[in-house]
Design a protein around this nucleic acid. Structure first.
Lengths: 229, 229
DNA sequence: GAAAATACTTGCCCGGAGTGCAAACATGCA
DNA sequence: TGCATGTTTGCACTCCGGGCAAGTATTTTC
């Protein structure tokens, strides 16, 4: 493992990242890196937890101290991705229309650094049931968090109780539309990370929010969104 | 197992349900029944595949000929439920606004016979990660099928290519709203199957479709839908 | 700075999941 | 009746996931 031999507390991090915390973070990262690497080289389903542990330089048992399964290790990538979106959402002003906040948060995702690992996972997961199952879980988890975030926001501006149906239906729909946009993007661009491809993704995300905001008004959906490139 | 000793081809079924087919269907049913029963009596996670096999009167190995896991066996219940909705959707006239079709299909679900097994699963699944994960899969599978159904429908009325983003975003949102309605219903009524409770569910489903159709227009969601009962 | 308290890693071991295989058994068809 | 085809079952094997206790690293206390 060889954790970096710095004396602790170098950068301007608040909260004193102790040696233990640094080690844990490093191990965690080593695991997901090893897992992603094996995924790339051997393909989904063709390696075991022991393989990951060996590649990460830890024991099989230790792997399970960090993640409950191979999929969980890989899903942490998607989790990070969706948490990014969530943070963006929380940063939006409370007065803003909520769909506009969602649109802004989603568009932030169409960034090379952010989307790259997920694009990889996504394309590999397309062919693999085990994998896509845990992807689903990550999206669902994100939905729950959006519900919480939206509930908090509304609690600020509204007096009485918040309508749970509104919250849950809205959050679920936003996530579904985000997912739809990514699905179409993959079908169209195959996870390509070139600028033109990312701009397609961005536009798809915007379009999907537009559809949602208009109540899917267009009854003749035979007009594909213009592929600018 | 003791399959029923009828000579085959009794009822007015088309397609000649052979003895083999009948046996398989019976075994399948016996498995899900046994699984649901164990779920009720022992709670989620407190029984093994072997337990189910014993209760169903088959070998452990045979269980795996039918389902890949305990969760898959239980999920087949949810699958049946969602397939009902899908059939309803396919029966709607092609000219009808698609959200109206979705609304009609979902409302059909608020029927005691249909919703009972799912209500049970749902409430048990609330506390169980393993279970809710496979529920997610079932909903997702249904989304895919709605996409197909909607694509077919649009292919009839529209000339050119169908907008995949529209399809996927719409189908995903409809399912999300249906899920949201069920979540709220469970939170409110705890899966109660009494007529008043079901009418609440029906209204929630209608309301959620209304929200979707209006683009979640109301920016002050502090107005809970009226609980008529 | 040494010793005690605490956190993390590891090996050992166990029960359960899931699957390939081949023998036994049931059903369908001629 | 007898052969072809499909289904069930036991067996053996790998992998998962986690409890436990001994060993190692880090932090705290004096």
């Amino acid at each position: 493992m060889s954790p970096s031999p710095f004396p602790s507390a170098a950068s301007g991090d608040p909260g004193v990242p102790s040696r233990r915390e640094l080690n844990k973070a490093a191990t965690r990262q080593a695991i997901t890196d090893a897992a992603m690497d094996l995924l790339r080289t051997r393909g989904p389903g063709n390696f075991t937890v022991e393989d990951i542990a060996d590649a990460a330089g830890i024991s099989r048992r230790t792997f399970f101290n960090y993640f409950g399964s191979t999929e969980a290790a890989l899903a942490s990538v998607t989790f990070g991705f969706l948490d990014t979106a969530l943070q963006q959402f929380r940063l939006r002003p409370a007065g803003e229309p909520i769909l506009e906040s969602a649109r802004a948060a989603l568009v932030e995702l169409a960034d090379p650094m952010t989307v790259a690992p997920v694009a990889e996972l996504y394309s590999l997961g397309q062919t693999n049931p085990q994998l896509s199952r845990s992807e689903l879980e990550a999206w669902d988890h994100c939905t729950e968090q959006i519900i919480d975030a939206a509930r908090e926001r509304f609690a600020l501006t509204a007096a009485g109780d918040v309508d749970e149906l509104y919250l849950r239906a809205l959050a679920g729909s936003v996530i579904s539309c985000g997912k739809a946009a990514m699905d179409v993007w993959f079908a169209r661009c195959g996870g390509d990370l070139a600028p033109e491809s990312l701009s397609v993704l961005r536009q798809l995300l915007i379009d999907s929010m537009g559809l949602l905001g208009s109540g899917f008004a267009s009854h003749s959906p035979a007009t594909p969104s213009p592929d600018r490139h």
